Computed example of a mutant assay.
Amino acid sequence: MDEKDFHAADRAARFEAYRPHLRAVAHRMLGSLAEADDAVQEAWIRYSRSDTTAVGNLGGWLTTVVGRVCLDMLRSHRHRAEDSLDAALDAGMPAPAAPAAPAAPAAGPELDALLADSVGAALLVVLETLTPAERLAFVLHDMFAVPYDEVATIVDRTPTAVRQLASRARRRVRGAPEPDADLARQRRIVSAFLAAAREGDFEGLLAVLDPDVVSRGEISVTAGAHAVARGASSVAPHVGTVRPALVDGAAGAVVLSATGQVQRALAFTFVRDRIAVIEVVTTRERLDRLEVELDIAP
Rank of each mutant, 00 (worst) to 15 (best):
E3N: 12
F6K: 12
F6L: 14
A9Y: 04
F15V: 05
H21Y: 12
M29W: 02
S32R: 07
S32V: 06
L33F: 11
A34R: 05
A34E: 02
E35G: 02
Q41S: 13
Q41F: 08
E42P: 01
Y47V: 00
Y47H: 00
R49K: 10
S50M: 06
D51V: 07
T52L: 08
T53W: 09
G56I: 02
L58W: 02
L62N: 08
T63E: 13
T63I: 12
C70P: 01
M73Y: 06
H79Y: 14
R80C: 05
S84K: 07
L85G: 00
A87P: 00
A87T: 04
D90A: 06
D90M: 02
G92A: 01
M93C: 06
A101G: 06
A107H: 09
G108T: 03
P109G: 09
E110C: 07
E110F: 06
L111D: 08
D112Q: 11
S118I: 00
T129Q: 01
T129H: 01
T129E: 05
P132K: 09
E134Q: 14
E134D: 09
E134W: 04
A137Q: 04
V139F: 06
A145P: 02
A145T: 04
E150L: 11
V151S: 01
A152N: 10
D156N: 11
R157A: 14
R157C: 11
P159S: 04
T160V: 11
A161Q: 10
V162K: 02
V162I: 06
V162W: 03
R163K: 15
A166W: 00
A169H: 07
R171F: 09
R171A: 09
R171G: 01
R172D: 06
R172W: 08
R174P: 01
R174D: 12
G175R: 14
G175F: 10
A176F: 13
P179D: 08
D180V: 10
D180E: 15
A181N: 15
L183C: 13
R185D: 11
R188M: 13
R188L: 13
I189G: 04
A195P: 03
R198G: 13
E199V: 08
F202R: 14
G204K: 09
V208P: 02
P211H: 05
D212V: 11
V213E: 03
V213I: 04
S215P: 00
R216F: 04
R216E: 13
G217A: 11
I219V: 13
H226W: 07
A227C: 09
A227E: 09
A232K: 06
P237T: 12
T241Q: 14
T241C: 11
D248C: 12
D248F: 07
G249T: 10
A251I: 09
V254K: 02
V254P: 05
V255D: 06
A258E: 15
G260E: 10
V262P: 12
Q263T: 13
R264I: 13
A265Q: 05
L266H: 12
A267Q: 14
F268E: 07
F270Q: 04
R272E: 13
R274W: 03
E279F: 03
V280S: 10
T283P: 00
T283C: 03
E285C: 09
D288N: 11
D288R: 13
E293P: 02
I296K: 05
